[in-house]
C-alpha cells in the first residue's frame, strides 16, 4: 500500500512538473502592455454613443456581453437550487447556534440600514462609476445575512428570497424579450442613451443592473443562510 501511495505521489509530481513547464513556456510568449485589442478598441470608440454608459466596463457587461451576464445570474440561481437540493432538510428539526454577544447584535442592527443604502447606491451608479449590480448585490446580501449571524434563531425568510430571485431573473429576460417583440435582437438596449454621465442615462441598463443586484443579493443571502443552517445542525 505504501508503494501505491508513493506511486501516486510520483505521478502527481510529474503531472505538476509538466504543467509547470507548459506554463513557463507560455510565460515567454505572453505580451504585456501591448494587447492586440481588436474588440477592445472598437468598443472603447463606439460605446459612448451606442450605449451611453460612462463606465465602459458596464457597457460590455450589460450591453455588448449582456447575454453572459444573464447566464451568470442563471449559474448563481442553479448553484443556489442545487445547494438547496443538497442541504435542504425536512421541516420540523430546527437547531440553531446560540445568540451572539451584545456588540455583534448592536453592530448588526446599526449596519443594516447603512449597508442597504450603500448597496443600492452602488447598484444605481453602476453605469457611471466602478461598481454595479454584482458588487451592490453582494453588499445587499451582507446586509440581510448579518442579522442572521447575530441572531441565528431568527431564520432568513426563504420564501421571500425565492420570490425576489425568481422575479428579478424574469425581469432581466423580459427586458431582453421586449426588444425582441419590437423587432430588434434579444437584449438590445432600449429607451435611447440619454446624456452621458448622468444618473438617468444608458437606457435600460440601470434597470438591468437593478435586476442583477436584487437577484445576486437574494441568491447569495439564500446560499449563506442554507450553509449556516446546515452548519448549525452539527
Amino acid at each position: 500500500m505504501r508503494q501505491y501511495n508513493s506511486m501516486r505521489r510520483l505521478t502527481s509530481l510529474l503531472f505538476l512538473a509538466g504543467l509547470g513547464l507548459l506554463l513557463a513556456a507560455i510565460l515567454q510568449r505572453l505580451n504585456f502592455g501591448q494587447p492586440p485589442m481588436i474588440v477592445g478598441d472598437a468598443i472603447n470608440a463606439a460605446a459612448p454613443a451606442q450605449v451611453g454608459a460612462a463606465n465602459l466596463v458596464t457597457s460590455v457587461v450589460l450591453a455588448y456581453r449582456g447575454f453572459d451576464t444573464l447566464l451568470e445570474l442563471t449559474i448563481l440561481f442553479t448553484a443556489a437550487t442545487a445547494a438547496g437540493l443538497a442541504l435542504g432538510r425536512e421541516p420540523g428539526d430546527r437547531l440553531a447556534d446560540p445568540e451572539a454577544g451584545p456588540i455583534v447584535r448592536a453592530g448588526a442592527d446599526l449596519f443594516f440600514p447603512l449597508l442597504l443604502v450603500v448597496g443600492l447606491y452602488i447598484i444605481f451608479h453602476g453605469h457611471l462609476t466602478p461598481g454595479g449590480g454584482f458588487q451592490g448585490g453582494v453588499i445587499l446580501a451582507a446586509a440581510f445575512f448579518m442579522p442572521q449571524l447575530a441572531r441565528p434563531a431568527s431564520r432568513l425568510e426563504h420564501r421571500m428570497t425565492t420570490l425576489i430571485e425568481g422575479l428579478a431573473g424574469a425581469t432581466f429576460i423580459l427586458i431582453g424579450l421586449l426588444a425582441l417583440f419590437e423587432g430588434e435582437a434579444f437584449l438590445t438596449p432600449l429607451l435611447g442613451v440619454g446624456t452621458l454621465g448622468t444618473l438617468l442615462s444608458a437606457g435600460t441598463l440601470p434597470m438591468l443592473y437593478l435586476a442583477v443586484g436584487l437577484k445576486v443579493g437574494a441568491e447569495l443571502a439564500g446560499l449563506l443562510a442554507s450553509l449556516a443552517e446546515m452548519g448549525a445542525e452539527e
Binding site: 442563471t74 440561481f77 425565492t162 430571485e165 425568481g166 422575479l167 431573473g169 429576460i173 434579444f186
Partner: peptide, 21 residues
C-alpha cells in the same frame, strides 16, 4: 430565425418562475 433565442431563454425564464408559479 430571430426567435431561436427562445430555445435558450424560454426554459430559463420558466425555471426562474417555477417556484413562483
Amino acid at each position: 430565425m430571430n426567435n431561436l433565442i427562445l430555445l435558450v431563454v424560454l426554459p430559463l425564464i420558466t425555471a426562474f418562475l417555477l417556484p413562483v408559479i
